[in-house]
Design a protein around this nucleic acid. Structure first.
Length: 527
RNA sequence: GGUCCCAUCGUCUAGUGGUUAGGACAUCAGGUUUUCAUCCUGAAAAGAGGGGUUCGAUUCCCCUUGGGACUACCA
């Protein structure tokens, strides 16, 4: 039975690297029908943050990384919060003391600092000099009687070479004489990570320790501890680090590291998880699809396919994943809605990312259109300026015209729809277009003629009708589409880029359309 | 400084003792479209260097170089 765990320390936020570690642990457990545990490592009293544990649990819940055992999901190995287990650690520390695998150290911080300074000066590796290991029992007792503060240190057998087989890195070995006598119990009575981690992983019957590469150098200490206790150590798998652009360990200084920040910026959970999963892992083979759900990942994940080298956290790829996922979710939702309205709906997928829903009944078609607008609003509602929310009907219509842009980047919604609600000042040159052979003369003609035909048109609700009328004009004048349509579009928007003319006209309605065209025309009066 | 880990396009990566070294993101060019976006097509772009082993090495081994992590009474 496979048992894995994610053991974060409650700092108040979840690091993206931490999320990936949690994810790999979760995936490995799920893939092997194992158990995934959440354990809170809060043994550092100085770093206590109010509510951080609850927050961590919320984040796991948000990500969908459901743990089978944890602080709020008691299994038979609880409690799952280390600060509630201090007695246990003390007991095991005593066992180590009894076995002479650990010793009390009374050295003051000053002595330790001085020692380290000297070692550095001599270009030697800074390590505890074992001063207190050589204290006689009487001396130790005397210090104890005096009430001198002490820590408990691990006694590392210096002649030994520690070897282990990392599931990702293969054979790794460390010479005992390069391993420091690690502090196991701090002077405040709390254990350090090293002791708590080993004791808990053993007691909780963790079979696979999947953690960040930064722990690789302390793994021999842990293995020695297991050995001192007479326990079998779990399998270790050290996953590669997430890196900044300059290849250093992903850090706050060079960008956002907390998952909360990315959520705030609008990245979806599916995108974040998908992206992060592929940073250091790949299903392998000829698989070219990269869009994976948590379920897909769960069924395909293997430690063998995890990389050794660190991976740069490239925000541009995240953006792409986010877009793909926005699209995927959107179309899945739409087709569900469509089928609910009418199971016989015709759904076509003429090109990648584009779906056309056709209903027999006109009523159904418009009901669907409303739902579509609602769905789009749902995606970008957090970013839309309040002033655009007043006229719901217009807003709904406008959203549909910028569908692809919303899916791509919901945050830019305002700049994409602002022209519907009012046109800004623009230079008359905007009405011309060199490449499309639209000079002032052409622009003027286009606006005048289109004004005429549009004045004669009454049905502005139908895009098709508008298109028909304008294209007929194009044909009549014997010019290219763009020569007529560009001036209209730019007169209607005052912008270089916007949705298409026909849809804009149908949203703006007759009066506003004609007004804007007239306004454009007035700019050209003296030409 | 010491210990350990790592090394394929700019980035994430696939794959192999014999391949035109494949894909994705980003970039650039062309096309479709009334503009932008979308979409389609294409281009440029990589096995750090040096030794071995081998008929043959990007792939296996060694060295060098480069990068990184760790080096706390933090985790």
């Amino acid at each position: 039975m496979i048992r894995t765990r994610f053991a974060p320390s409650p700092t108040g936020y979840l690091h993206v690297g931490g999320l990936r570690t949690a994810l790999y642990n979760y995936l490995y457990a799920k893939k092997n029908d194992g158990t995934f545990i959440l354990r809170i490592e809060d043994t550092d009293q100085k770093r206590y943050v109010e509510g951080a544990t609850e927050h961590l649990m919320e984040m796991m819940n948000w990500a969908g990384l459901n743990y089978d055992e944890g602080p709020d999901k008691e299994g038979k190995f609880g409690p799952y919060i280390q600060s509630e287990r201090t007695e246990t650690y003390r007991k095991y520390a005593q066992e180590l003391l009894d076995k002479k695998a650990a010793y009390r150290c009374f050295c003051t911080q000053e002595r330790l600092d001085e020692m380290r300074l000297n070692q550095e000066k001599q270009k030697k590796a800074p390590m505890y000099d074992r001063h207190c290991l050589y204290l006689t029992e009487e001396e130790v007792q005397k210090k104890l009687d005096e009430g001198a503060p002490f820590v408990i240190r691990q006694k590392v057998p210096s002649s030994e070479v520690v070897r282990f087989d990392d599931k990702i890195r293969g054979k790794v070995s460390f010479a005992g004489n390069t391993i420091d006598d690690q502090v196991l119990i701090k002077s405040d009575g709390f254990p350090t990570y090293h002791l708590a981690n080993v004791v808990d992983d053993h007691l909780m019957e963790v079979t696979h320790v999947i953690r960040g590469e930064e722990w690789l150098p302390s793994t021999p200490k842990h293995i020695l501890l297991y050995k001192a206790f007479g326990w079998q150590h779990p399998e270790f798998a050290h996953i590669p680090l997430l890196l900044n652009k300059d290849r250093s360990k992903l850090s706050k200084r060079q960008g956002d590291v907390s998952v909360e920040e990315y959520i705030k910026k609008g990245y979806s959970k599916e995108a974040i998880i998908n992206f992060i999963a592929f940073l250091g892992w790949h299903p392998g083979g000829a698989e070219e699809n990269e869009i994976f759900t948590l379920e897909d990942l769960s069924s395909q994940f293997t430690l063998e396919k995890v990389h050794k080298a660190g991976a740069i956290f490239d925000i541009e790829k995240l953006e792409w994943f986010n877009w793909q996922w926005n699209r995927k979710r959107y179309h899945e939702k739409l087709s569900a809605i469509a089928k609910e309205i009418d199971p016989k709906v015709l759904i076509e997928n003429p090109k990648k990312g584009e779906f056309i829903y056709t209903f027999d009944d006109k009523k159904n078609q418009s009901a669907f259109s409303r739902k579509k607008a609602e769905t789009l609003l749902e995606i970008c509602k957090d970013y839309i300026d309040e002033k655009y929310k007043n006229d719901e009907d217009i807003l709904n219509k406008t959203l549909v015209t910028v569908e692809e842009k919303i899916l791509r980047n919901p945050k830019e919604i305002n700049e994409n729809i602002s022209f519907y609600f009012g046109i800004g000042e623009y230079e008359k040159e905007l009405l011309t277009h060199e490449k499309m052979k639209v000079d002032f003369e052409m622009a003027k003609t286009a606006l005048e003629k289109s004004l005429e035909v549009l004045e004669d048109l009454d049905d502005f609700d139908s895009e098709g009708k508008i298109q028909e009328v304008l294209l007929k004009l194009v044909e009549k004048l014997g010019v290219k589409n763009g020569q007529i349509l560009w001036p209209i579009r730019s007169a209607l928007t005052g912008l270089q880029f916007s949705p298409g003319v026909f849809e804009i006209i149908s949203v703006l309605g007759k009066e506003e359309t004609l007004n804007r065209i007239k306004k454009g025309l007035s700019k050209l009066e003296n030409q």
